[in-house]
C-alpha cells in the first residue's frame, strides 16, 4: 500500500526539530533510519500529517568519549556502533547485540535511537490494513480485543529490539529533550511494560542521546538471540548478560531479556544468586530459572510461548557461563 500523504520536515538544527515537534505535537512522527516506521506507514499503522526527518541533525550523531563514559547520538547507525573501536573495547556487549539486528543493509540505515524506540510487535498488529480488517483489529490499533490475551484489556505486543537489553545491562541512560527542557532517565524507566503505550515519551519529546556510564565499561558479556534465520529476523527471544569479575568472583552480574514481554526487562534478583556456595553450573541454572520466570511470552510471533520461555532459560544459562569463561 502507498504511504498516506504527509508533509516532510527536514530541519538542520536540533532546536528547530524540537520546535517542530512541539508545534505539531501528536500529529507528527519522527523518521530516523525508517526501517520500522516506513513499513509500518505502508501498513497504515501510522498516518501522521507531518514527518520529522532527523537525518541532518549533527548534534545527535556520532560516538563521543566523555568524562562520564560514552555518549552516543540517537541518530548513530547500528553499523557505526558495531564498527566503533571505542565501543568494541569498552562495551563489547552492545556491539555484539547491535551486530545481530536484522541484516547488514538494514544496519546501514537503522539507528540506535530508533532501536531503543522500536515499536512493539505482534503478528496481529504488524499487518496490512486489509489484513487487520479481517481480524477485527486489535487493542493496539483501532480495535478492542487483544487476540493473544483476549480476556484482558492489556496489549501484549512484544518489545523486539536487540540493543536495549544490552543497554539495560550496561545501565545506560537516555537524554530526552523537548523545545524547552531536557531530562535524563535510566533506560529501565523509559519502558512502561504496556504493549500499546510502551515508552514514556511525550509527543513533543525526542530521544537525543544514549549514555553508557564509565562504571559499566569493560564488563564482559554475551548476547544470545533466538531467530529462525541467521539474518533479517527480529528476535523471538533474547538475553543479554553483563558481568564484572573480581578475583574470579562475580562482582556484578546483570541480565536483561527482550522479545518476550512488552518491554525489555532487567531480571531482578540476579545478584542475590551469585557467589553462593554452589557450582557455577548450578548458579547459572538458578539464574536462568529466574530469567525464564521473568519472561511472559505470548503468541505474538512465530514459535510458541513455552518454547520461547524455555529458550530464555537455556540462553541465559549459556550466556552466564560464557561470560564467566571469558
Amino acid at each position: 500500500m502507498t504511504v498516506k500523504p504527509f508533509q516532510l520536515l527536514c530541519p538542520r538544527e536540533l532546536s528547530d526539530a524540537l520546535a517542530t515537534l512541539e508545534k505539531h505535537s501528536g500529529n507528527i512522527r519522527v523518521l530516523a533510519g525508517g526501517t520500522d516506521l516506513l513499513p509500518s506507514m505502508r501498513q497504515r499503522l501510522f498516518e501522521p500529517e507531518y514527518v520529522l526527518d532527523i537525518r541532518q541533525l549533527r548534534e545527535i550523531q556520532g560516538i563521543r568519549l566523555t568524562e562520564q563514559g560514552i555518549e552516543i547520538g540517537a541518530f548513530t547507525t547500528l553499523h557505526a556502533i558495531e564498527n566503533s573501536d571505542e565501543l568494541k573495547r569498552s562495551y563489547p556487549l552492545l556491539v555484539e547485540a547491535a551486530k545481530t539486528v536484522a541484516s547488514p543493509v538494514i544496519r546501514n540505515m537503522a539507528t540506535i535511537g530508533g532501536n531503543v524506540c522500536l515499536d512493539t510487535r505482534c503478528l496481529w498488529y504488524n499487518q496490512s490494513l486489509s489484513w487487520r480488517k479481517s481480524c477485527g483489529f486489535c487493542i493496539k490499533k483501532d480495535g478492542n480485543i487483544c487476540h493473544v490475551a483476549p480476556g484482558g484489556t492489556k496489549c501484549w505486543a512484544a518489545f523486539s529490539a536487540d540493543t536495549p537489553p544490552a543497554l539495560l545491562c550496561l545501565q545506560a541512560e537516555i537524554e530526552i529533550r523537548n523545545a524547552s527542557s531536557s531530562r535524563r532517565v535510566t533506560l529501565e524507566k523509559f519502558y512502561t511494560g504496556e504493549g500499546d503505550n510502551y515508552r514514556r515519551l511525550q509527543p513533543d519529546e525526542l530521544v537525543t542521546h544514549i549514555f553508557l556510564p564509565r562504571g559499566s565499561a569493560l564488563y564482559g558479556g554475551a548476547y544470545r538471540k533466538l531467530r529462525i534465520r541467521g539474518s533479517i529476523d527480529y528476535p523471538l527471544a533474547a538475553v543479554a548478560v553483563a558481568l564484572k569479575r573480581k578475583n574470579g568472583d562475580f562482582e556484578d552480574l546483570r541480565i536483561a531479556i527482550t522479545a518476550v514481554n512488552p518491554a525489555p526487562l532487567l531480571v531482578a534478583g540476579v545478584q542475590s544468586l551469585v557467589n553462593r556456595a554452589m557450582t557455577r553450573e548450578r548458579m547459572a541454572e538458578e539464574i536462568a530459572e529466574l530469567a525464564a520466570r521473568t519472561a511472559k511470552p505470548l503468541t505474538t510471533s512465530a514459535l510458541t510461548p513455552e518454547y520461547r520461555r524455555e529458550i530464555i532459560r537455556v540462553f541465559t544459562k549459556r550466556a552466564v557461563l560464557e561470560a564467566a569463561a571469558d
Binding site: 503478528l123 496481529w124 480488517k133 479481517s134 481480524c135 477485527g136 480495535g143 478492542n144 480485543i145 487476540h147 493473544v148 490475551a149 483476549p150 480476556g151 505470548l298 503468541t299 510458541t304 510461548p305 513455552e306 518454547y307 524455555e310
Partner: peptide, 28 residues
Amino acid sequence: NLTEGVDPTRPTRFREHGGALCFKQKGP
C-alpha cells in the same frame, strides 16, 4: 507445551496459531 498440543513425533491434526480471533462479543 512447546507445540500447541500437537506431538511432532505422532501428530494427529494440523496445528493452529495460538491466541483467539474472537472472544465473547469481540473480534471480527
